[in-house]
């Protein structure tokens, strides 16, 4: 009898141990960008609702001196740690070594340690940006729309001049050239992720240089791009979250990077045991993690057949009929 009880207890204990109860979300920036970091946060909130886990968020507010202690604090408490680790890849490896039994999921970049503790979710952002570039090129040639000039120029505003943003620009350019090889692309790297005023300034410059559509790839800084589009009656493309409703009538579409959905997906894999440590999960249009947000706001700006064409393109990218080249640093 006692043996049975012990076994039951043991099994129960193992189950209790196996099912993660505490989830931490450590980010290098800060929430409230209505874009990248917030997308992940919505996923974390979803976990709380659906699985009854406890969650905590640590925002580092772009302060490198907080990266290491934040990770250590999170690791001491949580079972699963989702990390957006721009700039602290080395620290992440170091802390993960100290807590190898935790589940470490690094998002948006690839971090590999020697022992294979950290898993990474890597997005094929070129695919989404390709579609954004295609849309921008289509729109800049549609002179019948209000505010579109005959010059074939499109723009992009990037946060930093770094690998991920360059991948975005690389895809954006491919998409634009796919529609019309004559389209010119102008890019400004602002150098901050949390300053909408600078983003607006950059966008106004691009519009003044003849661009009709500006793609923002700069988290909160990019919100200024949307504002600029509204102010002078031009068009913008949002990023990461669906930003179409933020400035209705001027944001044509948004290049989604579903950080929240990926977090949800990964956590479900952890629960049903299909999650693998040390693996790189590559998410793109096919997995539904990257793609364009086409909704009534888009349809209010663009005619029916253009929307159809865009959706067709998205399907082709998902199926692999159009092969989008990936950026090689």
């Amino acid at each position: 009898m006692r043996k049975v009880l012990l076994t039951i207890l043991l099994v129960f204990g193992v189950c209790a141990l196996a099912a993660p109860k505490k989830v931490a979300y450590v980010i290098n920036g800060s929430l409230g960008d209505q874009s990248f970091y917030d997308s992940g946060y919505s996923g974390i909130k979803q976990l709380e609702q659906d699985f009854g886990v406890q969650t905590r968020v640590i925002e580092c507010n772009f302060d490198p001196s907080l990266y290491y202690p934040s990770l250590t604090t999170a690791a001491q408490w949580a079972d699963v740690i989702f990390v957006i680790s721009y700039g602290f890849e080395e620290e992440l490896k170091e802390v993960a070594m100290k807590f190898p039994n935790k589940i470490w999921v690094n998002i948006d970049t690839v971090v590999q340690d020697e022992k294979g503790i950290i898993s990474s979710v890597d997005y094929r952002e070129e695919e989404g940006a390709f579609l954004a570039g295609a849309v921008a090129a289509m729109v800049t040639t549609m002179t019948e729309l209000p505010g579109i000039n005959p010059q074939k120029i499109i723009g992009a505003v990037g946060g930093d001049d770094d690998i991920v943003i360059r991948s975005f620009v690389f895809g954006y350019e491919q998409g634009a050239k796919y529609i019309d090889p004559e389209v010119q692309i102008k890019v400004i790297y602002v150098g901050t992720w949390d300053d909408p005023a600078k983003g607006k300034q950059a966008a106004l410059q691009l519009y003044a240089q003849g661009a009709d559509v500006v793609f923002q790839i700069a988290a909160l800084t990019g919100f200024g791009v949307l504002q600029a589009a509204q102010e002078i009656g031009k068009y913008a493309i949002g990023v990461d979250s669906n930003q179409n409703p933020l400035v209705p009538g001027h944001v044509i579409t948004s290049d989604l990077k579903e950080v929240g959905k990926s977090i949800y997906k990964i956590f479900k894999m952890v629960l049903d045991g299909t999650f693998e440590k040390g693996k790189i999960y590559s998410f793109g249009v096919r997995e539904g993690a990257v793609g364009l947000a086409i909704d009534e706001y888009t349809k209010r700006i663009l005619p029916e057949e253009t929307v159809e064409k865009i959706l067709q393109l998205q399907k082709m990218v998902a199926e692999g009929t159009i092969a989008v080249k990936s950026y090689q640093p």
């Binding site: 302060d63 490198p64 001196s65 990266y67 700039g87 080395e90």
Partner: peptide, 15 residues
């Protein structure tokens, strides 16, 4: 002696 061992944007924080 820190944790970064490289120069990166924002390393000066608010020191």
């Amino acid at each position: 002696g820190g944790t970064q061992h490289r120069f990166m944007k924002g390393i000066g924080a608010n020191f």
